[in-house]
Design a protein around this nucleic acid. Structure first.
Lengths: 221, 221
DNA sequence: GTACGGCGTGCACTGAGTGCCATCAGTGGC
DNA sequence: GCCACTGATGGCACTCAGTGCACGCCGTAC
C-alpha cells in the first residue's frame, strides 16, 4: 500500500508536476481512500522521501553502537550511510533530485530532513567533545561541514544521472573535511611514565585537533 | 500596515501559540482585511521573519560590493550582518527564538531562510575559488561551517535572553572556522624546512599556557 | 455466534492560500 | 468641475492540505 502510493505519486509528479498533483489524484490512481494516504504519510511532502525515516534511524543506531578513537571519522562513516540509501535506487534518487530541485516546497522539506541528520551527527560529536573547550561549537561546525561535503558530492553524482562513482566522490569530499578538522598533530607522545609531553604538529594543522591531542597526552581526556 | 500586522501577530502568537492563531485572528486584531495580510506576507510563516528579506539583500550587496584578499574573512564579516539584525531588536529576537524553537513548522521555515544565507555565502566563495581544485566543494563546506559557527553563537546568545556580548561570541566562533579554513590547503600542507612544530610541555602545566605556546608556535597569534 | 482490535474508508470540517472583482483615494489632464 | 488612470485595499468564493470522527470490514480469540 505504501509502495503503491509512492509509485502512483511519482508517476503523477513526473507527469504533471508536484503542485499540479493533488492528493486526490494520487489516491485515485492508487485506488485507495484519501484518508489512507494520510495514514501512511503525514503530509504530501513525505511521500517524496519515503525512506529517510528509516535511514535516520539507521544512522542513529550506527552512532550509538560503535565507538572509534576518532569521532570525526565515525561521523563521516555515518554520513556515508545516507549515500548508500541513495545509491540503493539510483533511478529513483535522480528523479527525486530533479523534483526537489525544481519545487521550492520540497526543497524546504528536504532541508528539514537534512537538518535532522546534521543534528544526529552533532549530538554524537557533542557527547564526544563534552568538557573540551568549545566542544559544542566544534561539534556543530564539524557536523555542518560533514553534511555540506557529503551533500556536495551526492548532488554532483545526482546531477550526472547516477553515473560515476558516488562512493569515491563522497570519500574525496569527506577527506577534505577530515583534513581540516580531523588530521591533527602528526604525533603526541605522553603515555610514558615521565613528566614531559612532546607534541609534533604541522603548521596549519587545526588548533582544536592539536589541543585535543594535547589534552589526551596530558591526561585530561 | 506591515508593522501593525507583525505586532498583532506576535501578540497573539505569544498569547495563545502560533498554531492556535489563525490569520483571521491576526487581521481582526490589526483591523485590516484578510486579503491584505497575504499581500504583505506570502504565508503565515513569513510574518515571523519580517526582516530577513532585507537582511539577505544587505548581505548580497555586501558580498557583491567589496573585495578583500581573504574571501573567508569576507564571508565571516557577511555573516556578522545577520547578527547585527538580531541585535538591533534583542527583545523581539528572543521572543521569536522561543517561538521558532517550539514550533516545528517555524523551525523548518527558518531552515529555508538560513539556507538562502548559506547559498549567498557559498556563491561568493565559489566565484573566488573558481578554477582551484575542489573549489566548489571547499566553498560549500566553508559556507556551511561559517553558518554553523554563527548560528551556534547566535543561539547561545538568544538562549541567554540577549544578555552578554553577542558580537564577541560570534567573533570567537568564527575565529575557529577561520583557524580551520583561513589558511588555505597549500599553506596547511606546509613546504620548506620550517613546517613542523614541536611543543614540549610538562605534565600538569596549565592547559591555557600550553595552548598559548602552541598558538605562537603555529603562527596564529 | 459473539466480542474485539486493527485497518481501511467516507464525511464533514478547519484553515491556508489564491484569483477575481469592486471600492476608494490620490493624481494629472482637460 | 469632470474624467481617466493607478495603486492600495477589501470582500467573496474557491481549491486543497490536513484532521477528527464514526462506520464498516475482516481475522482472531473465546
Amino acid at each position: 500500500m505504501r509502495d503503491a502510493l509512492v509509485a502512483a505519486a511519482f508517476r503523477l509528479f513526473l507527469e504533471r508536476g508536484y503542485e499540479q498533483t493533488t492528493v486526490d489524484d494520487i489516491v485515485a490512481l492508487a485506488g485507495v481512500g484519501r484518508r489512507s494516504f494520510f495514514r501512511y504519510f503525514p503530509s504530501k511532502e513525505d511521500v517524496v522521501f519515503p525512506d529517510h525515516e528509516r535511514c535516520l534511524a539507521d544512522m542513529t543506531a550506527f552512532l550509538a553502537a560503535g565507538s572509534e578513537d576518532d569521532p570525526v571519522r565515525r561521523v563521516c562513516d555515518a554520513a556515508r550511510l545516507v549515500l548508500l540509501m541513495y545509491a540503493e535506487n539510483p533511478a529513483f534518487s535522480v528523479q527525486r533530485y530533479r523534483l526537489t530541485k525544481s519545487v521550492p516546497g520540497l526543497r524546504a522539506y528536504e532541508l528539514s530532513v537534512v537538518w535532522r541528520y546534521e543534528r544526529a551527527l552533532a549530538g554524537f560529536l557533542r557527547d564526544r567533545f563534552a568538557g573540551l573547550p568549545d566542544g559544542v561549537l566544534r561539534a556543530d561546525v564539524i557536523a555542518a561541514a560533514v553534511v555540506a561535503a557529503h551533500n556536495n558530492a551526492l548532488r554532483s553524482w545526482l546531477r550526472s544521472d547516477g553515473k560515476g562513482d558516488a562512493e569515491a566522490a563522497v570519500d574525496h569530499a569527506l577527506g577534505h573535511v577530515r583534513a581540516a578538522f580531523g588530521a591533527g598533530p602528526v604525533a603526541a607522545a605522553g603515555e610514558g611514565p615521565g613528566d614531559v609531553v612532546v607534541v609534533v604538529s604541522r603548521r596549519g594543522a587545526p588548533l582544536w585537533r592539536v589541543v585535543q591531542e594535547l589534552e589526551t597526552a596530558l591526561g585530561r581526556g
